[in-house]
Design a binder for these strands. Sequence first.
DNA 1: GGGTAACCGAGACGGTACGTCCGGTCTTCAA
DNA 2: TTGAAGACCGGACGTACCGTCTCGGTTACCC
Lengths: 210, 210, 210, 210
Amino acid sequence: MSAPSPARRTGRPRSPEADRAILDATRAALVELGWGKLTMGDVAARAGVAKTTLYRRWANKNELVVDAVAALFDEHLDLPDLGSLQADVEGVVLRFAALLERPETKTALMAVVAESTRDDALRERIRDAIVDRQKRLVLLGRERAQARGELPREEDPSAAARTADLIFDVIAGAVVHRTLVSAEPVDREWARGFTTLLVGGLTSTQPSGD
Amino acid sequence: MSAPSPARRTGRPRSPEADRAILDATRAALVELGWGKLTMGDVAARAGVAKTTLYRRWANKNELVVDAVAALFDEHLDLPDLGSLQADVEGVVLRFAALLERPETKTALMAVVAESTRDDALRERIRDAIVDRQKRLVLLGRERAQARGELPREEDPSAAARTADLIFDVIAGAVVHRTLVSAEPVDREWARGFTTLLVGGLTSTQPSGD
Amino acid sequence: MSAPSPARRTGRPRSPEADRAILDATRAALVELGWGKLTMGDVAARAGVAKTTLYRRWANKNELVVDAVAALFDEHLDLPDLGSLQADVEGVVLRFAALLERPETKTALMAVVAESTRDDALRERIRDAIVDRQKRLVLLGRERAQARGELPREEDPSAAARTADLIFDVIAGAVVHRTLVSAEPVDREWARGFTTLLVGGLTSTQPSGD
Amino acid sequence: MSAPSPARRTGRPRSPEADRAILDATRAALVELGWGKLTMGDVAARAGVAKTTLYRRWANKNELVVDAVAALFDEHLDLPDLGSLQADVEGVVLRFAALLERPETKTALMAVVAESTRDDALRERIRDAIVDRQKRLVLLGRERAQARGELPREEDPSAAARTADLIFDVIAGAVVHRTLVSAEPVDREWARGFTTLLVGGLTSTQPSGD
DNA sequence: GGGTAACCGAGACGGTACGTCCGGTCTTCAA
DNA sequence: TTGAAGACCGGACGTACCGTCTCGGTTACCC
């Protein structure tokens, strides 16, 4: 948040230690208990903080958990250039899978998404905090592939956006489904198979074209 | 094989009407309230049944909802032969999306999956009741495509299984992600774009081959 | 009940063993659990009998418990002539106290009486089964004392009845209060003190007289 | 003597209004429903209070009802000097009877006493809150009678205590038995007859003496 | 360096749902 | 028709959380 908190000047400032302790405690509770059993009282106790202090910062459980999980997605977002489209995609698949296999994300992500089907504000928050950050990697990967000549440049910007969305849904969806629904590991072999399929599709045709 | 009634003889038998009424009430409550607000007491009241009667059959909310949702997957499982691999895949994509866009599945499915990350018995139940039924469509579609000569026959059965799993994760994952995370509709255009990408990948390469 | 059940001839006759087993089980449960925790299901299980069998014989918990307790009051009703009013009263006091100190009566009696404050039929049943049987002892004792010349004969029968009621309330009330409320034992010393007080009052004045 | 607030400092203090509202509601519910039908949820609703608030103060129905009834015994505890032993005893008898005939005490007292036969803590609470307060009247009455010269002074303090206990059991027991078991009213006539009997006994002999 | 406004901990509060238990009834099969 | 078994409805139980509130007490900033 770049905007400096608009109207707060006087009075005792909020403790930044409390912020950190609460988010840490939330993640720890998530790992131990899962979304369903996590309680605000327990998080407060773990953080050595009063419940009031939680509610002064987050309006409810959902918002707290989304923020706690979102922080995990801040890290691991760089995508080094691996030299080819195939290698870049494999890289992002493995990176995303590694994130999803961490116990705190595993439970939290689906639970938060489930909750968001009934709560537009929550969905917006998830999109900002989690989804769009992942999508940037796709855009970056395509940029590189086009620079290398592996993929043609798309003139129509709306078609380009549609294609990027599609690719993102395919990558993220496949990894999530493999990890959380099929409950099978995303290992190097699976990543190669999936990437080969995807890159084959991308290069053989122009999905949104024509 | 012989006597399918393993253990119950004495006492009043459970009412099959109650079973039906409870599952119907669960689906209705899911539509109106969503997973989060659904309560056992409310379901019982809708079904005209005592709470005891629910708990005699299902140990908790999760199991009840899985069974209630699973019944929806029993219908809509046929896949008419549409004449080509492309058409068959488009068909299954649209059919699956239609299911996911129904309000009772939308919330319930993700919530139950989220819960299953902490509960192996629940995951097993989901797999049996929901996932494997969908996967059968993929196997059927491949069978037809091979019969038509659109796809080569895979000799190694374990490689064949791996490929089927991959395709299933890609299709189901992409549709779920598009519907629930991106929260965009799976319309005919998106289905065509996705299918083109997938079929392109399948025919241009042998994903698990080599 | 002397009247032979009017209209029952055909079908399987009721098991008299069940009757006994149920009443025994009720008393046992009363001792272990007290009135409040006693449950019909538990009694049935102890008696090795189905709940149906209980309800075929008694309309509800109260009736069952009253009958079970009443049976205890059937015994111990004889009052041997001890030669003097003082000795006779002491005898009845000790006998009644012995009954009240048995664990099954201790809890049950007060509980049933408490229940009866809201239920006239129950009060009637208690009067018939328990109270009036005790009162007979008082009448018998007075009869003897009058025969011995220790007490004058009362001409007015309604005044005589009033006096007998008073004496009964005093004796029974004092013993019950000592035993259950003060929770102190009714030993020989207390019985002698109480009897001296009562007999002193009876002989020094004509309580209901004028 | 100095600081009577032993242990509570931090946190929001308990609402004294809630205390009062709950006890009032309990008495009202007792009048309308009786002990057996009184429920914690109903009391909470009448008091405009959450069930939690009840359970934070009283562990169960018994304790709550004892306290609610005990408050009634706080009022009506004065015993004006009526000039003679006979008049004082008649006074206390009628006063006690008036209390017992109120619908909220009628059911509650016996039920709680019944429960106390299984629960020592409850008996202690009843003794402190109810029994001992009544007993003070007996001691006061004797004091006056001795001052007037109607009764001799007892030298041995333990014998004095025993006599007081006896008189108390006789008075309270007789009134309770008349009211709740015999279910007959304690009117002026009965009170006079009973008092005559008791005072006759007290003055004609020294019950515990010799 | 004294106000003061916002902070913090503790914990009570109203509410809602939980999952269990029991009372009393009903239904099935067997004796 | 009785009996055992056990499902059924209704309703209270006591507990657990949620999110709010009210205490006494603690900082940082600003004048």
